[in-house]
Each structure stands twice: as structure tokens, then as C-alpha cells.
Design a protein around this nucleic acid. Structure first.
Length: 274
DNA sequence: CGTTACCCCTGGAGGC
DNA sequence: TGCCTCCAGGGGTAAC
């Protein structure tokens, strides 16, 4: 579900409510996620202060000064701020209780993940096995056409799959890979190593623009994702290709097609993308 | 090493 | 109404 824009929108929504606040209680109500929620969170977290909330790829990191709470929303996870005492639903796995509000994690498909990392934020980023393997942040200046050109040499896999590989670039999932490729006029099927340098430049720019626009409109709400206040994102309304198989391309009027790449539906316009 | 197939899980949609 | 199949913002692992 949530790709980089949705995670970033969640982060920004939580910042003003949780920064500097002290955790009163941590309730593990349904521990089974991709990996069991550590049972000791209930003992560990109360009394700690949330100094900052950071993001790395699709992970959120709650910096609690002497440790970091690591969170991934998987396919169907969402975070909401609710009033204390609000009844929990079937798929509400975890509550972080503060004096004025409760941060509630919901995740029906249970592909999400919650972990505790001892030490400060920098140490966590440099040491946690799920974080050290992550690729470049696409919104950082270092991610550009030249970087992408180098990263795609020797890779014969379809460019969409390389773009979605978090060991290469983080945060770009199925929606934003499809939309970025449309914006750049590149077929998702094209072997990555066959991209010229100018086309890599165009694609890197397209990725940045697509992600920035999505963040600006609050991300995409297609199934489970909601903002921390329960509101919906607006990006899905402006998708050019994602979820539009069989519909008319808004640029050329041709028909949007879908192919399967790495098990994922990949929508594109065969006329506009080559 | 790079690539692919498969698995984790629940729920909604559509066919019959 | 029910049952069955397929599909979904992710990602880790095993095997070639």
C-alpha cells in the first residue's frame, strides 16, 4: 500500500501532534504481523519521549532518544490518531498512548512490521539489517540521471522492476513506478540497461516530480490507506495509467494496457511509452 | 551477482 | 445467499 508519499504524508501528519510528547502506554493488542511485534514494547516504551519522527524509504522511525521504534506499513497498514478510549477494531494491532491522543496501527493483511532498535537514530540507520540494505532516497539530490544511469548498467530486468527494487531506490512502489514511467515516456518493459543517459535523466526527474506531487496532494488512497486524521489522499484521481487498464490514455487517446511484471500488474500506454 | 517464482495474509469484487 | 477464483500501495527467501 503505502509508498514513499503515503509514509511521508503520515509522518508530516503526526509530527505536530507527537513531537516532544511522552509515551504513557504501549498496547500490543494483536502481535502477529510479518514478524511478531516485540512483546517487551509494553514495558520498554512508557516514559520515553518522542524526540523526532523520521522516514527512510517506506519505514517510519520514531526517535525515542535512547532507542528507535521502527515501523513499516506493508501493503495495508495505516496509522491514525484517535481520542483516548476509542474502541479498537479487529485489525488494530498496536496503540501508542499519549496523554491527549492515541496513535493506532491498523493492518488487515499483516505485512507490516514493528521493531525496537537500541541506540540513537544514526546508529539504528547504520546497523539495523532491514535499513542497511536500502538503496538511495529518490528525493535526495544525489539521485539523478547520472546516478540512475550507473545503477542500471548490467541490469537486463525490465526498468519498472529495477525502479521498484528497494535495494536500488527506496519508496517507489507499483503506483509511482507506473506513473513515473508514463511521465518519462518509457515502457515499463524496457530492459533497464538499454536506457540512454538522457532517458535516465528524464526518468529520475519524473520520479522526483511524481513523488513530490503525490505528497503535495496527500498521497493515494486506493484501498486501505488513510491519513492520520482519517482523511483520504487525492493522487489516485490524477493517475495517468495506474488502475486504468482498458481506459483511454489522456495524452493520445489510445488504450492503456496491463502486463504482469514480477507478479505485479503494470499499466502503461504502448503509444506514449517506448 | 541478477533474476524469477513463491510465500506471507485478509478482504473485496465478480463469476456462477 | 454462498462458494470459488482472482486481485490488491510490499518485501523476504530460496533456487536457478
Amino acid at each position: 500500500m503505502p509508498e514513499l508519499p503515503e509514509v511521508e504524508v503520515s509522518r508530516r501528519g503526526l509530527l505536530p501532534h507527537l513531537t516532544g510528547k511522552t509515551i504513557v502506554e504501549a498496547k500490543v493488542r494483536a502481535p502477529r504481523l510479518r514478524r511478531d511485534i516485540p512483546a517487551n514494547l509494553g514495558r520498554l516504551l512508557p516514559g520515553l519521549r518522542v524526540a523526532a519522527i523520521e522516514r527512510r524509504g517506506k519505514y517510519l522511525l520514531f526517535d525515542c532518544e535512547n532507542g528507535v521504534l521502527l515501523l513499516h506499513l506493508g501493503m495495508s497498514g495505516s496509522l491514525r490518531l484517535v481520542a483516548p478510549g476509542t474502541a479498537a477494531g479487529k485489525h488494530d494491532h498496536f496503540d501508542l498512548v499519549f496523554a491527549e491522543s492515541v496513535l493506532r496501527l491498523r493492518d488487515p493483511r499483516r505485512f507490516g512490521l514493528l521493531d525496537w532498535i537500541d541506540g540513537d537514530l544514526a546508529a539504528a540507520l547504520a546497523s539495523h539489517p532491514l535499513l542497511t540494505v536500502l538503496g538511495i532516497e529518490p528525493l535526495e539530490p544525489e539521485f539523478d540521471g547520472d546516478w540512475l544511469y550507473r545503477a542500471t548498467r548490467g541490469r537486463r530486468a525490465p526498468v519498472k522492476q529495477v525502479l521498484m527494487d528497494s535495494h536500488v531506490v527506496v519508496g517507489v512502489g507499483n503506483i509511482y513506478a507506473a506513473e513515473s514511467l508514463f511521465r518519462a515516456g518509457i515502457s515499463p518493459l524496457l530492459p533497464a540497461e538499454r536506457l540512454s543517459r538522457p532517458r535516465c535523466r528524464k526518468l529520475a526527474e519524473a520520479v522526483k516530480e511524481t513523488l513530490r506531487e503525490a505528497i503535495a496532494v496527500g498521497g493515494s488512497s486506493v484501498r486501505d490507506y488513510v491519513h492520520s486524521d482519517g482523511g483520504m489522499g487525492g493522487f489516485q484521481l490524477s493517475c495517468a495509467v495506474y488502475g486504468r487498464e482498458g481506459e483511454a490514455c489522456r495524452a493520445c487517446g489510445g488504450t492503456i494496457r496491463s502486463v504482469r511484471l514480477g507478479g505485479r500488474a503494470s499499466c502503461y500506454c504502448p503509444h506514449c511509452q517506448r
